[in-house]
Structure formats: structure tokens, C-alpha cells
């Protein structure tokens, strides 16, 4: 097989380690606020990236990270270089702000076409908006087979062979190239790039692209190119439905056990 490029889509998301896990909303755009908050690579995307880098041992020529986000997302793109991508592109343009899932997929697909690829890897779901739509939508846009919820992947002579876990079923799935593979978050932590990775990233190419660089028109991108709009964000209802059980721990225990007994869920049938 000829060496080919794997593009890994890395979404810059608010860093849960630095923003205490809370995702803030931009009151005007009603989108996730990504400007001015510390950003990092979406966790699922790191497994995608690790898998792509590992495949370099079996004939993959090059791993290219592609991110779309505000200029602050440069750090996340460089993180991808430290983890092992050979090149990184950040698609960053005011025109792209407020893109919904379809518009995001369109912009990323345009970037992928410009880079050229034998496969596209992405996360199954982001940790902030988490629609899980970008992968499948890109597969449709680029006309690629979609291998969802991949947990491990190998390259054979007939393409990829992947372990997947889909809708409560687990099995091995094959797809010819080019293909789009989306990766789950795994139970093990992702690999740290180490200091060696950070130093190696210094000399790797990093490029910022505008919408024009990937031949996106204004009406295809951003809010204008998004078929969905968020009309409002409603706070969680504060109405209380629970009957409060008061008293000291012994009284509470009695009442709670009474509920469990009434529902018949205690193992010895009480």
C-alpha cells in the first residue's frame, strides 16, 4: 500500500482541568464560549490521534491535525504536534464563528480536501457541545464509509480493521480506504506527550487558514451557513418535586428503607 495521510480532526474545547469543568455560554451567539478560556484537545480526539500516530509504524505516511476554532486554539493544535502529528492546521476565521454541526462539518471537509488524505479520524463526540454529528456528517459530505465508535484499529491489505462498540454490540469491522473513523473515549488515560514531544513539536509546521484558504464561501460557513439557530437557553427548572425527608441519620435511614421496601428492591425481598 502506498503511504497515505491520516487527517485527525481535533476540536479545541474548554480545558476541563483549567476551567473547572464548567462550559460557559456566549449570551449573544448562544454558543459555547471558546474565546479567552483555556482550550485543549477534546479527549476522544486524543485517542484518534494516538491511533493515527501508532499506525505510522504500519505504513501511514503522515499524520495531519486539523482544528477549527478561535486563534487561541493554536495551543491545542501545537499539543497535537507534541502528541505526534507531523503537521497541524488551524482553520480560524471570524466567518466561521457560530458554525453548527453541518457548517462545522462543511468547513472541516473543505480543509480535508485541501490537505488531501487517505483517511480521516475524529472523535465520536466532543466534551462541550457533544452532538456527535460532525463525524457522520463529514462522512456523508466526503462520500466516505464511516466506522463509528472505534476502540482500536489496525491496517491490513484491504484497509482498516477496527474493533467497535456500537449500540451495545461489539465486533470487528472492515472498511476500505479512504474511510472516516470516529473514536470513543477509552477507559485508560491518553498518553502524555512528555517533554520530548513538546520539544519535537517546535520544528513541525503549523499553519493558520482562513475560510478563503479552503475555498469556503461566506454563506457556507459560520452562522450564515448554519441551518440551526439557538433561539434561547432556558435555565433548569427550579421547581421542587421531591418530598424532603428530614431528621437525624437514623430517622432518614428508616424512611429511605421504607421506600426501598415498598418498591421491593431490597435483595432479600424486604
Amino acid at each position: 500500500m502506498e503511504p497515505f495521510t491520516i487527517i485527525v480532526l481535533i476540536k479545541p474545547v474548554p480545558d476541563p482541568r483549567k476551567s473547572r469543568g464548567s462550559v460557559a455560554i456566549d449570551p449573544e451567539r448562544k454558543t459555547v464560549r471558546r474565546q479567552g478560556v483555556p482550550l485543549t484537545i477534546n479527549l476522544a480526539d486524543r485517542y484518534a490521534l494516538e491511533a493515527a500516530v501508532a499506525l505510522k509504524a504500519s505504513g501511514v505516511g503522515k499524520v495531519v491535525a486539523v482544528a477549527m476554532g478561535p486563534p487561541d486554539a493554536e495551543g491545542a493544535a501545537r499539543e497535537a504536534l507534541a502528541i505526534g502529528a507531523d503537521e497541524a492546521y488551524l482553520l480560524s476565521d471570524r466567518l466561521l464563528a457560530g458554525s453548527d454541526a453541518v457548517a462545522t462539518a462543511r468547513a472541516l471537509a473543505a480543509a480535508c480536501r485541501r490537505v488531501g488524505f487517505g483517511a480521516v479520524f475524529a472523535g465520536a463526540e466532543s466534551s462541550d457541545a457533544g452532538t456527535g454529528l460532525v463525524g457522520p456528517t463529514m462522512a456523508a459530505l466526503l462520500g466516505l464509509p464511516h466506522v463509528p465508535h472505534c476502540r482500536s484499529i489496525a491496517l491490513g491489505d484491504r484497509g482498516f480493521e477496527a474493533e467497535v462498540r456500537v449500540d451495545g454490540r461489539e465486533g470487528r469491522v472492515r472498511a476500505g480506504l479512504p474511510a472516516l473513523v470516529t473514536f470513543d473515549r477509552l477507559d485508560r488515560p491518553p498518553k502524555s506527550p512528555g517533554f520530548a514531544g513538546v520539544v519535537a513539536a517546535r520544528s513541525k509546521p503549523f499553519t493558520v487558514w482562513t475560510a478563503g484558504d479552503v475555498a469556503l464561501r461566506a454563506d457556507e460557513a459560520g452562522m450564515a451557513g448554519s441551518p440551526t439557530v439557538v433561539r434561547e437557553v432556558r435555565p433548569a427548572s427550579t421547581a421542587k418535586r421531591a418530598v424532603i425527608i428530614g431528621g437525624d441519620p437514623e430517622e432518614v435511614a428508616t424512611r429511605v428503607l421504607a421506600v426501598l421496601a415498598e418498591k421491593g428492591v431490597l435483595s432479600d425481598g424486604r
Binding site: R17, E74, G75, R78, S192, G194
Partner: peptide
């Protein structure tokens, strides 16, 4: 920024 990356890498490790 590079020192921040080093810190993140060390912390993850």
C-alpha cells in the same frame, strides 16, 4: 506557551 505545555505534559504524566 511552551512552558505551559511542558507543565500540562508533566501533570498528565
Amino acid at each position: 506557551p511552551e512552558q505551559e505545555m511542558l507543565r500540562t505534559a508533566a501533570r498528565e504524566f
